[in-house]
């Protein structure tokens, strides 16, 4: 089963490093994308006057998406366990989100 692990942190690369090192070693990392600083983000949305572009992101300050990894692991529980170990002792958060696949085996 595939999950996106979304790593939120203020800036710390620690969380990203952990994803790379630990999940490579466990044979579960499919892909890791490290994101540039949130200051480089441009967010587009539709407002009353049409489409608006503004610099900056939607996340709350202090909880910026710094990286996301795609993992291939046995179950939702396993992905949750991985995320818990990644975030343990560090500031920030890791969200676990299922990825759509052709098999789609979230249930059973």
């Amino acid at each position: 089963m595939r999950f996106a692990l979304l790593a939120y942190a203020e800036a710390a690369p620690e969380l990203t490093d952990r994803i790379r090192d630990r999940l490579t070693a466990s044979g579960e990392l499919v892909h890791l994308v490290e994101l540039a600083d949130g200051g480089h983000t441009r967010t587009l949305s539709t407002g009353a006057a049409g489409v608006l572009a503004r610099d900056g992101e939607l996340d709350e300050p202090g909880r910026r998406l710094v990286a996301f990894g795609i993992v291939d692991c046995e179950s939702y529980d396993r992905a949750t366990h991985l995320a818990a170990r990644l975030v343990s002792g560090l500031p920030g958060a890791v969200a676990v989100r299922p990825v759509m696949t052709t098999t789609g085996s979230l249930d059973v």
Partner: peptide, 15 residues
């Protein structure tokens, strides 16, 4: 077959 990188699969097998 499982659409994962070869290095990931190699690691999974050796573990």
């Amino acid at each position: 077959a499982f659409l994962v990188p070869e290095s990931t699969m190699g690691q999974r097998i050796s573990r």
